[in-house]
Nucleic acid binder design. Sequence first.
DNA 1: CATTATAGTTGACTTCGTCCAGTAATTTTA
DNA 2: TAAAATTACTGGACGAAGTCAACTATAATG
Lengths: 304, 304
Amino acid sequence: MTAQNEATQKIRSFNRFYTRLLGLLDRHILDSDFSMTEARVLLEISKENGTTARKLTERLKIDPSYMSRMLRGFEARSLITQTPSPTDSRSKLITSTAEGLLALERLSERSDAQVRSLTAALSPEELQSVLDAMALIRSQFSRAVFPAVIRNYQPGDEEYIIQRHRELYLNEYGLNEAFAGYVHKTVHQLTDHLDPNTECVLIAEGNGRPMGSIAIAKRDSQTAQLRYFLLEPEARGQGLGLRLIEEALSFCRQTGYKRVFLETINLLTTARSLYSRMGFQIYQTRVQSDWGREVTEEYWELIL
Amino acid sequence: MTAQNEATQKIRSFNRFYTRLLGLLDRHILDSDFSMTEARVLLEISKENGTTARKLTERLKIDPSYMSRMLRGFEARSLITQTPSPTDSRSKLITSTAEGLLALERLSERSDAQVRSLTAALSPEELQSVLDAMALIRSQFSRAVFPAVIRNYQPGDEEYIIQRHRELYLNEYGLNEAFAGYVHKTVHQLTDHLDPNTECVLIAEGNGRPMGSIAIAKRDSQTAQLRYFLLEPEARGQGLGLRLIEEALSFCRQTGYKRVFLETINLLTTARSLYSRMGFQIYQTRVQSDWGREVTEEYWELIL
DNA sequence: CATTATAGTTGACTTCGTCCAGTAATTTTA
DNA sequence: TAAAATTACTGGACGAAGTCAACTATAATG
């Protein structure tokens, strides 16, 4: 009890400390042309060109009228453009201008500089130890801060799966459009005739946004294929991937499958270690050259 | 360069994460009767009964007019009393009422509960690893956040040294008033006839407040005594103690002393390890029973 | 003793943000 | 298919937090 209490005091002390640190770091926003909230909104707009005020208010939990005024201000400063939505004439589509992106760039550059000055005096080993410490704190507290939920398929989710597979695999792993096309085709095969009793598509959601995906496709009455396992970079390292896989496998068990297999490529090291942790084993590999670079395709299976 | 850049991004990501966490934790202040700033002010008042508005505005960096209004509000809510200062009729002495202390207590209890709920799911080992991680981050970043300065003696510093020795040694180590009286007497012996060429009293200051002390007293032309080394609990673990000792020893070297000795007690483990790190060695010990409990007095010396 | 500095106060103002009521367009429902 | 309900956005009023400049009364200084 006393130990717990002492720990509580230490954590509160650290929190006060870090509040001050963050205060110092965010100081630069004070003497920029943006408030904290404006910066958040501007960033969010840049992330999704053609959003609506609605989405922004939901994601950032900002009052609609406040948002309306802020957007008008942004438009007056030529940071964004608002064009009437063709599909819903109540809304406007909001897009960053080059000027807006530049402003964000400058803001981000200044933040980077602040952090660099903070770490400048540290040796590489010390820096690494700080990063490790941050990762540890984050992983222990993430559940409280980041209450991601895993929900079932909703129409429109294929868009997300296809688009993010495309962006992540092309950028991070250097695959080509052929791969993206393959994903596009097979995702639609699954979602166009989804049998909810034997198949599922699960989406992890946090911050009012998809944070990852996984799917179970039926191969035969005994065999399921685990597909489209993806986790947003910002959501990694928080056990969310594990939850997704567990959820998917739990679905397989309920459905009565005897065997689950999956296809992956050797490059996806984090995913691979998760598969192996769940009991999956490689039963076949082959070299695949159709996707822009030579990769080793691996087939893993798990007997339930 | 890229590694540094990646580290910067990771740190900024952690900062965003922790900002959200702190936001959640501070939420309770929102539905209390106090704003963040009010809570800080109230806490500061409770720490020093009989402060003045002036001191508060300096320490907490709050606008005087804002402070004036806030204090009037507190008085209306019976959280503090303001009585005209007998020594300076421009100022008022500000004191917490029982009600004010109770309100703070409640606030603190709620903060504790929040933190406990955050750590409830952690095993003792995990909790300890979080505490270690926090300590590490803190020690690496403290210099930036906590730019304590070491300055020379100013009239009035004896008050601080005597009072804090008294409070810390009586509370933390269970010594008695005899010890406090001993400190009182010897401090005045030093400061009443301080020879700036051969003696010094150094005060570490941070947050506009003393954070620690150290002194060098002349014994003979060859020998100096290091005394009154003290560091506020909130300023510990940040290398400030080391800086104080180094500063004091550097003064001894400049002055031309050949030998520095000091008296300490076996209970002060942190200070002892600092002494040993600087090259001090124990040359004599004796049991001391005059100070409320039996302690071993140790005499350390360092040949310059 | 006149000047200057300090402690605190007051009024006007800005910024950030919330609440409520409204309009126009869209969707749902009877 | 017309009325009712919902949704996307806007505008006005307001409030909390905080800043700025001017002012009063007292104290320190040369």
